[in-house]
Amino acid sequence: MTTLVAVLLTTGVLLGMGALVIDVGRIYGEREELLSGADAAAWAVANQCSVAAIACTAYAASAQSYAALNASDATVTVSRICGFNPKASAAANTAQACPAVNGGLTQCLGTRPTDLTLGWVEVWTSTKNPDGSTLLPPVFARALAGGTSNNGTAVGACSRVRWTPINLTNINVVTLAVAACAWNTSAPVGLQFRGSVAYTGCGTAAGGGGSMGGFSTFGLLSGLLTCTTTLNLPIYKTALSLLNGCGTVITNSVGATLTMPVYNDIDPVLGFRLVGFTQFKLANYCIAGVGNGVPAGSGLTCTALGGQTWIYGSFSRSIPGSYGVTNLKRDG
């Protein structure tokens, strides 16, 4: 009889320990998904908001999308997005200020940056089940406790990313602007001149200035004579349809790297909104049907009859100061 009682007690203890291990393991798994989602969301928001204050508008949707992609059931709550952006107004920063830390286990690690030249963002995530509930239900603990005392566990995570702002003052560039949607590729790309008959856009300007894509000249005609200028960004510059001196710069720059401004919007009156810059290694060109060869597999043509004007090459994103951010770092 004593042996039987001991066996039953041991079995009960083992079952209880097994149930505890399974339920605690689910909590750790859930937290890992939430933390991965918070990490991805924070990186996405930082990458977006570090470019310019005007680009920091749809960050909530970006954060939700990246967080959900890291959840096994594609459901997660982004409960808080807060931080500081040195490019934003005082009012905007006040609206997005983070509340005081409460010492909880789900807050970001470390201390928040106090240097006002640094931008940073915190993204907080928490459990959301497919049915909309916000507690992670136990597998065995409720049954062992009689089915009433454990409704689930609130699980959360936080990630903080900070960035060093890009230096966007006194930048020496060629007067050839490239659309952000055309820049957004790591593969070699052919950029059609906006005045070329073969030009097609890759997006639509939110400011009402028509299609965005390819590359174009900008600014005053005097700047086009040398195809170089110095910019403080962000700034609006009038779009032009002439190559002028830029044609000579292009033909003399094969194999070289051009520093080009990047625009993310077009205003019908003000022109391109230049928000950053990138470096483009030029491999091939075609100006009014005359060029140095057409890259195989590029789909480009270069004939005088067609009047095509394009440049072909690759964006060097790894070079410090390129469009986007120069220094992103996970901070908590």
Score class of each variant (00 low, 15 high):
Ala154Asn: 14
Ser196Trp: 06
Ala55Lys: 12
Phe218Ile: 04
Ser314Gly: 02
Phe280Tyr: 14
Gly152Pro: 15
Gly83Asp: 09
Gly276Ala: 12
Thr204Gln: 12
Gly103Pro: 08
Val269His: 02
Gly110Ser: 12
Ala154Gly: 08
Ala100Phe: 07
Gly247Glu: 09
Asn292Asp: 11
Val101Lys: 08
Ala55Pro: 00
Val269Ser: 13
Thr230Ala: 08
Gly16Ala: 04
Leu274Ser: 09
Phe140Glu: 11
Ile311Asp: 08
Cys286Asn: 11
Val24Cys: 06
Leu274Asn: 05
Val173Ser: 08
Asn47Val: 01
Ala68Gln: 08
Met212Cys: 00
Arg330Tyr: 07
Gly213Asp: 09
Thr10Cys: 13
Val275Pro: 01
Leu300Asp: 01
Gly291Ile: 14
Gly299Ala: 10
Val78Tyr: 14
Ala74Gln: 02
Ile166Cys: 12
Leu191Ser: 01
Ser196His: 05
Leu136Gly: 14
Leu14Pro: 04
Thr57Phe: 05
Ala154Gln: 14
Ala58Pro: 03
Ala283Gly: 11
Ala91Tyr: 01
Pro295His: 10
Ala288Ser: 15
Gln192Lys: 13
Gly245Ser: 06
Gln308Trp: 09
Thr185Gly: 07
Arg162Lys: 15
Pro188Met: 05
Glu33Val: 05
Gly146Val: 07
Thr94Met: 00
Thr94Arg: 06
Cys246Glu: 12
Gly201Val: 06
Leu8Phe: 07
Gly25Asp: 03
Asn151Arg: 05
Val101Gly: 06
